[in-house]
Design a protein around this nucleic acid. Structure first.
Length: 569
RNA sequence: GCGCCAGUAGCUCAGCUGGAUAGAGCAGUAGCCUUCUAAGCUAUUGGUCGGGGGUUCGAAUCCUCCCUGGCGCGCCA
């Protein structure tokens, strides 16, 4: 990469000057000795503001320092170097050199943008929605974000494992199991608090067809008025009196709903490598379970205490605002402990980076999980969290209500059936994830430049359309100046790996969407003012090269976002 | 009350590890189709970057206080 090489030249020149002036440069400042990619050609191809930052320690004015550095920079690819403004160094690359650099893009093809700059294993956990129903629209945002992030990280050399944590134990699953049994075998019951909706009814009837009739009747008897007490007593009654039914119904429900979730995800092209079941963590009192192992470590490191008959973890020592209970007064593990155990299991699987994508409503959970992780982790392991905020759907300018009291809700698959997966992915990724999003369904359906998804796809379609009529011939003559005049397309193409790396390290797929929008705009503009297929063979071949490059960069970008580029519209 | 996230053009949002005149799309205004898809392009109007202080050569960006909005603060999961 030319930018990397230019940065090395700049660094060595600066350190040379520093030596002459007996100036010490600390690593913090050294990081700032770099060139940046210029957004337009008025300031050259690359610019550095390092002299503004270094002027103080050199005891010289920024411009003065810039002139010294300028005089020492030499590289055959640079045609011009200028000191401008308060002390910026702007450098210009020759058109011929740009053409040479573009050949690398063509050579790399689909792998342009990929690198091995980073290394290490990443465990990326995302979605992890409870297997109690189909995914809703909000889950979709987390799912799409996770997939795009995984692709970005893989582009720059990380080995990423995508994991889904399945909460297949606990109270919600008991309620789900009860819901299925009640719907299958009981005529009339109080539905408040149970899972409802068409998917429950159809699963219940499917289960009844498979399991058959019961040999005794379910008699719920008198039930408490309190919803939670009622639900728990139904669950324990069913579990005790109909054990086989209960176990079968639970397995059936979880399996079936996981199938629904998987199919929701697959229809968006989202594939998890690993489905980790909470039930596999074992019991807290089993000596070699993940739960007991994690308890033991936190205990041994002296971070637990007993209070009110429960076992606590002093997470406040790690920045949490409250200490947290691990084992309840009755000896049962809390949900928190199961998550701690899950992370113990993750740690033992020896990854370098752990990334958890959570809905923003779980942000309060981060300090306590980080506390546990840091107590249990091995050296050099680190954890980070990415949050995504709510999605509000708007249709005809009106906020769409996504759930009803009957448990019927407007699901992710409903949205997909209405719009198709790709435009949804593009829209979800367009905004920063940690920001509430208004999703305009009318705009998503619009087939005009107002819709950024169509606008970008249309640029790709135009490339394909041109290239179906003529092809770039690398052996024929080109006009380097003609190519270099397409500054934005050329600059973005040459520097594409730099952008990808930045977006991956910043964990910001939304920046790639903005890149695509800008890049498409640059191509549409080019398309209007520069007819590609002309009588002039040299000009045509040059413009065909621009078209080929655009197609390639758009393709690689769409692929990274897990969006399928359209060849025709 | 405490914590997290946000407040940038009429609307939807970029920019935020300090740097050269604050960007884009929509909406508004004025133009461009015998020519590779006008499903598009060009030009232009529009901003005390929520408000007050501070840090410095320089602040939308960092610190602090305040205002407004969203979310979260269980021995629930």
């Amino acid at each position: 990469m030319i930018l990397k090489e230019l940065n090395e030249i700049l660094k060595s020149v600066v350190s040379e000057v520093a030596k002459e002036h007996s100036v010490q440069i600390n690593p913090e400042i050294e990081k700032q000795i770099i060139f940046e990619i210029s957004p337009d050609n008025t300031r050259g191809d690359y610019a550095s503001s390092c002299c503004l930052k270094l002027s103080k320690i050199f005891g010289k004015s920024p411009r003065e320092l810039a002139e010294i550095i300028k005089s020492l920079i030499a590289d055959k690819r640079i045609t011009e170097i200028k000191v401008e403004g308060p002390g910026f160094i702007n450098i210009f690359i020759s058109a011929e050199q740009k053409y040479e650099l573009l050949k690398n893009v063509l050579k790399a093809g689909d792998s342009w943008g990929k690198s091995n700059d980073s290394s290490g294993k990443v465990l990326l956990e995302f979605v992890s929605s409870n297997p109690t129903g189909p995914l809703h629209v909000g889950h979709g945002r987390g799912a799409v974000l996770g997939m795009a992030l995984a692709n970005l990280l893989e582009n720059i050399g990380f080995k990423v494992t995508k994991e889904y944590y399945v909460n297949d134990a606990g109270r919600q699953i008991s309620i789900l199991t009860s819901s299925i049994i009640l719907n299958a075998y009981v005529e009339d019951f109080i539905s408040e608090g149970t899972y409802e909706g068409d998917y429950i009814k159809s699963l219940a009837s499917e289960f009844k067809d498979g399991f058959g009739d019961l040999d005794k009747e379910i008699n719920l008897g008198k039930l408490d008025e309190d919803k939670d007490i009622r639900l728990d007593s139904i669950a324990s009654y069913l579990q005790e009196s109909f054990y086989e039914l209960w176990v079968k119904a639970r397995e059936f429900s979880v399996d079936k709903i996981l199938e629904i979730i998987k199919s929701d995800l697959h229809s968006f092209g989202i594939i998890h490598d690993n489905w980790f079941k909470e039930s596999s963590l074992g019991k807290a009192n089993a000596s070699d379970s993940d739960l007991s192992k994690s308890l033991k470590i936190i205990d041994e490191k002296g971070h637990t205490f007993e209070k009110d008959g429960a076992k606590w973890f002093n997470t406040t020592a790690f920045g949490d605002d409250k200490d947290r209970v691990l084992l309840r007064e009755n000896g049962e593990p809390t949900y928190y402990l199961t998550d701690v155990g899950y992370h113990k299991n993750k740690i033992d699987r020896n990854y370098d980076h752990y990334i958890n994508i959570f809905g923003a409503d779980h942000h309060g959970y981060i300090p306590r999980l980080t506390s546990a992780f840091n107590v249990m982790k091995k050296d050099n392991q680190e954890i980070e969290f990415l949050l995504y905020q709510l999605v509000n759907l708007y249709e005809d300018g009106i906020k769409k209500i996504m759930s009803t009291r009957r448990g019927e809700f407007y699901s992710l698959s409903d949205l997909r059936e209405e719009l198709g997966p790709d435009v949804i992915k593009f829209f979800f990724l367009e905004k920063k994830s940690d920001h509430t999003m208004d999703f305009d369904m009318d705009l998503a359906k619009d087939e005009s430049k107002n819709n950024p998804y169509f606008y970008a796809q249309y640029a790709y379609v135009r490339c394909c359309s041109i290239l179906s009529k003529a092809s770039y011939d690398p052996n024929k003559e080109i006009d380097a100046n003609e190519i270099a005049s397409c500054y934005e397309i050329v600059s973005k193409a040459i520097n594409y790996p730099v952008f990808i790396k930045e977006y991956a390290l910043e964990r910001s797929p939304h920046s790639l969407v903005h890149f695509i929008k800008e890049f498409s705009a640059a191509f549409h503009s080019f398309y209007e003012k520069s007819p590609v297929i002309t009588d002039n063979e040299v000009i045509s071949n040059s413009r065909l090269l621009i078209t080929v490059l655009t197609k390639q960069i758009l393709k690689n970008s769409f692929n990274t976002l897990n969006v399928t580029p359209l060849e025709k519209m």
